[in-house]
Design a protein around this nucleic acid. Structure first.
Lengths: 183, 183
DNA sequence: GTCTATACGCTGATAGAC
DNA sequence: GTCTATCAGCGTATAGAC
């Protein structure tokens, strides 16, 4: 953390702490300490802790690239993306968002960022019946896996062969991507 | 709320408030007020707010019945169960658990109750390859749908024809239930 | 304008008197 | 057993120093 302007230093510190510790466990005072400034300054610059959260915790930048890949292997590719998310901030960001999910504005953010970065791009690429709806259901499968793997972190899941998860879960997603008509 | 013993009155009030408002937004003082007793009594009886939460917020009682049904239609039945969850407390309980998910002990609870009530019973009923793993992946799909429908509450999803969701998502779950070997 | 110092009303939790 | 008094810490607001 070199000599950044205070506003950027606060943003940096806030992102790190929110993603690492969640919303409730991250205090304004801790952010200020990590940024090397006064707690009051945090509020002065961003209005509130919640506003700071909404401004700092970002959507994933890698996801659009995955969603732009070939549609016939997208199911498995999405699963690979989730399982490899330890190096990207996706897992932490998602956990942070869920940990603040009892706040209506943050639920709204969860919805809108999911739509902008996932549902929208995907709905345009899949054919068949109700693409808008099916894209949302694919998103549900996607978040379900993030949830199980990175939040609940079930040991059996975490120690399982990744290839097997990719096959099983990827094909289940693919099923939804390919299905043309509701039976 | 008739004249219950204080301990039970606290439990009742706590369940209602946690499920309705989430963990952080529910204060010990509000629970005490709803139970008609002193805030200190709440802590005195249960040790802490978190311990009260863990003792109070229950697992779903209806789920075992669904999981005991015929395996060949279980996918769609699970989806019907989720979509009808407004009358059961499942949706609220799940939201409450997620809203407290930055607490390690509550994540542990999320994991254990998911295992006891879902993964365990299901793994015993499905054949094929890695039933333990596949049961967990089905659970991931299941929670993903709860998440999308009851927490994020995407309007498109909420206003969609339930039968269509049952067909699409149910068949994707069924795919995982039926799959015998990873490709 | 940028920042610090201070304070307010809330929270979960504790100690000790009835 | 139950309530009163009180604690330290929280998010937040404001007054005023540089």
């Amino acid at each position: 953390m070199p000599n950044l302007p205070p506003r950027d230093a606060i943003r940096c510190a806030a992102t790190d702490l929110f993603v690492r510790d969640g919303y409730a466990a991250t205090t304004v005072r801790a952010i200020a300490a990590a940024a090397g400034c006064d707690p009051a300054l945090v509020i002065r610059h961003f209005g509130s802790k919640e506003a700071l959260f909404l401004e700092t915790v970002p959507a994933s930048a890698d996801l659009p690239r995955v969603l732009a890949g070939p549609i016939e292997s997208l199911g498995r590719e999405l699963v690979r993306f989730v399982l490899a998310a330890s190096e990207s901030p996706v897992a932490g960001v998602y956990r942070a968002l869920l940990s603040a999910s009892d706040r209506p504005e943050i639920r709204e953010r969860l919805r809108s960022s999911m739509h902008d970065v996932f549902v929208g791009p995907l709905a345009n690429r899949i054919g068949g019946h109700s693409p808008e709806l099916r894209a949302r259901l694919v998103a549900a499968q996607f978040t379900g896996l993030i949830n199980a793997y990175w939040l609940v972190a079930d040991p059996v899941l975490r120690s399982a062969d990744r290839q097997v998860i990719v096959s099983f879960y990827g094909d289940a997603i693919q099923r939804l991507l390919d299905s043309a008509d509701p039976a």
